[in-house]
Design a protein around this nucleic acid. Structure first.
Lengths: 361, 361
DNA sequence: ATGAAAGCGCTAACAT
DNA sequence: ATGTTAGCGCTTTCAT
C-alpha cells in the first residue's frame, strides 16, 4: 500500500472545517474489502464477470464509507461527460421555459445533467458559454442562437451534436426545430382581412432574428395575398421587449390614421400591447381588433378573451430534444446519422373575442 | 516522446465520423513550442513567473491548434468543479423563474456553470440530482426542498455550501431565504376584514410545505386578530395546482353560504381561481372580493385589475445567491463563516380593483 | 472472477 | 523563468 494515502483522512475533520471533505475513493473501498480497486470499479459499474456477492459487498461498503464517485475522473477516461447544455436568451419567455421544463425531464430520464446558459442575446456571452460547455465535455447542445453568432462559437459547436431551437443561424451547421411563424402570422392577417380590415398593423420581433424575419414576411405576404399594401406607418418589426410593444402600440393608437387591427409577433410583445390598450382604455374589438402570439394561460382570462396564434410548445420542445438524442446516439454507435432534417411546427389560430369587423370610419 | 500519442489524431477524421474529436492537450501545445507542458499550463493560467512573450505564444498556438481545456482533468486536481446546482420543483413558476434568471446571471459573472435540476417535488428525483451534483463536485447549491427530503439527501447536502430558497426543511442544516408569506396573507385578510368581510375564504398551498404552512397560519392568525373564526368550509390549504384552485373556487362559489371574499396563497392558485371566476361569470368585486398572491405582469391587465400580495422576487433571489457565494468564499478562505442567518422578505399589499366592501346579504 | 498496471489531461511541488 | 516529476480517481487492457 502506498504510504499513508488511505487513512489519514479520518484523522482530520475534527469539527473545525465546516465542510470536511470526504475523499473516499474506490481504493478505500478496495482496501476495506481486501480486493483490488479495479474489482471495485467493475462492481460499481455492474460488469458481467463480477460475482453477485462481490457486487453486493462493494455496494454496501461504498454506502458505509460514504463513497461519492468522481465524475471528473470518469470523464478523463471517457469521451464525454453526461451533460447537455441549453442556451436560451431568456428563461422567463414561456416558449423557452417550456423547453427547459421538457428538456430537464428528458435529461433526468436519460441520465444527463442539464447545464442552463442564459445568453441575453449577447454573442460574447454565448461564446463563453459554449467554451465552458466544450471544456466540460458536454455531450450535446440545444441552442437558441443569438443574432450575431461568432465564428468561433460556430466552430466550437461543429464539434458536438447540436440542435437549434426556435431560431436558426446560417453559421451553425445544425438542424433546427421551430414554429412556422410566417404561417401563424399570415393566418392571423388573412382572418382580419377577411373580416374586412384594411389597415392592419404589425408589432413584431426584429428581423435580425430568423424567427422575427419569418413572421414579418408572413405578415407582408398575407397582405399581398389579400391585395393589400404594406403601410410603413403600420409595420413595426423592430424589437422584442414589452416596452417596445407598449410604446409602439401607444403611438399607433394616436396616429392620424390609426389601424383597425393589430397583430403582435410574440407573447411578450402581446403583453406590452395589451398594457397600452388597457392604459388608453381602448374598446377592443370595437375600436381595434387584436391578435396575439403564443398562448400563455392568462390570455384567455383577458376581458375580452384574447384571440391569438396558438403554438404547440411542448411538442416542438420534445421534437428538438428527440432530434438531439438521436444525434447523440448516432454518434455513439457510429451509425450514419440520417440527413438532418429541420422541422417547422404549424401554429393554429385561436379565435376568442378580440376580433370583429372594423369600425365604420 | 511517448510512442505515437500526439499526431495520430490528424490521420483519422477523414470526413467519415461526423464529430472528429480534437484531442489537443497541453502536451501538444508544449511539443509545438518546444517547451514543457507545465510551462504551457502556467502560461494558460496566467502565472506570475512566466514571461509575457511565452504567455502570448502559448495563447496563440493553443488557438491555432484548437485547444480546449479539459475541465474534468482540472477538477481532478482541485477540490471542486465550477458548478452551482439549482433544485426547483418547477421552472414555469414565476418565482423560480426569476431565481433561475438571477442565478444564471450571477453564475456567469462569477465563472460558474449553472446546473438546473427540476425535482417536481419528488424526493427521489431530488436525491438523484443531489447525488449527481456531488459526483460532479459542484461548488454549491440553491435548493427549494421537496416536502419529503430524504435523510440521504440531507446527508449529501451537509457536505457542501447550501442555501434553501422559498421553502425550508428541518432536515437540511442550511440557511434559507424566503418570503414572509404569513405576513403577506395576514395583510390581505386584515384588509378584507376591515372592509367589513366576515366570510373570507382561503385557497392555498398544502401545509406540508413550509411556505404553505406559514401562509395558512397567517390566514388564521389574521382572522383571530379581527375576532373572526376559521370556517372549515372556507379554509382550503390543500394543494398547489391551477386545477386545485379551479375546482375549489367553483365549489366555494356554489356553496350554500359562499364567501364574500377569497384570498389565494400562490400565483398559480390565483390563476386557477381567476379561471373559475371567469367561467362562472362572477361579478368581482361586487359579488366576491379577490386578493391574489404574487404579481406576474398580467395581474394588472385583468378586468378589473387584480389586487394582490406583491413580492420582491429578484431581491429575494439576489439575497439567496449572495448568501451562497458568501458561504463558498468562507469555505475557500477558511474564514469562520458567520452564523447563518436566514432571511424573510416582506411582502406588500397591492390594491387595485378586486376588493370592495361585501355585498349586502 | 479478479489483479496488475497503464494512462486519461491537468496542476503543483520541487527542482534548477 | 522554465523543466521534471508525481499524482488526482477512475476505467481498461492484459494477465492470470
Amino acid at each position: 500500500m502506498s504510504r499513508g494515502t488511505s487513512k489519514e483522512g479520518s484523522e482530520r475533520g475534527q469539527g473545525v472545517r465546516a465542510f470536511a471533505s470526504t475523499p473516499v475513493t474506490i481504493k478505500d473501498i478496495a482496501a476495506a474489502l481486501g480486493v483490488s480497486h479495479s474489482t471495485v470499479s467493475r462492481a460499481l459499474n455492474d460488469h458481467s464477470h463480477i460475482s453477485a456477492d462481490m457486487k453486493e459487498r462493494v455496494r454496501r461498503t461504498a454506502m458505509e464509507l460514504g463513497y461519492v464517485a468522481h465524475a471528473g475522473a470518469r470523464t478523463l477516461r471517457q469521451a464525454h461527460a453526461r451533460l447537455i447544455g441549453m442556451l436560451v436568451p431568456d428563461v422567463m419567455n414561456q416558449l423557452f421555459a417550456v423547453m427547459i421544463k421538457v428538456l430537464a425531464a428528458r435529461c433526468a430520464r436519460a441520465g444527463y445533467q442539464l447545464v442552463l446558459c442564459v445568453t441575453q442575446d449577447d454573442p460574447e456571452a454565448e461564446l463563453r458559454h459554449v467554451e465552458a460547455l466544450r471544456e466540460s465535455r458536454a455531450t450535446g447542445l440545444i441552442v437558441v442562437p443569438t443574432p450575431g453568432v461568432l465564428s468561433k462559437t460556430a466552430l466550437l459547436m461543429a464539434a458536438m451534436p447540436v440542435v437549434q431551437f426556435s431560431r436558426s443561424h446560417p453559421a451553425i451547421a445544425a438542424p433546427s426545430v421551430a414554429i412556422d411563424g410566417a404561417r401563424g402570422i399570415a393566418n392571423a392577417v388573412r382572418h382580419l382581412a377577411d373580416l374586412g380590415h384594411r389597415r392592419i398593423a404589425y408589432v413584431g420581433l426584429s428581423t435580425a432574428l430568423s424567427n422575427g424575419a419569418a413572421r414579418a414576411a408572413g405578415f407582408t405576404e398575407a397582405l399581398a395575398q389579400r391585395g393589400l399594401a404594406v403601410d410603413p406607418a403600420l409595420f413595426h418589426p423592430g424589437g422584442g421587449t414589452i416596452e417596445y410593444a407598449r410604446s409602439t402600440t401607444a403611438a399607433l393608437l394616436r396616429a392620424p390614421r390609426p389601424p383597425t387591427a393589430i397583430v403582435y409577433g410574440s407573447a411578450d410583445l402581446t403583453e406590452g400591447g395589451l398594457e397600452s390598450l388597457r392604459r388608453e382604455d381602448v374598446d377592443v374589438p370595437g375600436h381595434v381588433s387584436v391578435i396575439g402570439f403564443g398562448d400563455p394561460g392568462w390570455f384567455k382570462l383577458m376581458t375580452p378573451g384574447l384571440s391569438t396564434v396558438g403554438l404547440s410548445l411542448s411538442e416542438s420542445a420534445e421534437a428538438a430534444i428527440s432530434m438531439l438524442l438521436r444525434q447523440i446516439e448516432a454518434r455513439e454507435t457510429g451509425a450514419p446519422l440520417e440527413p438532418q432534417t429541420s422541422l417547422e411546427l404549424e401554429p393554429f389560430l385561436i379565435l376568442r373575442e378580440t376580433t370583429a369587423p372594423p369600425r365604420a370610419d
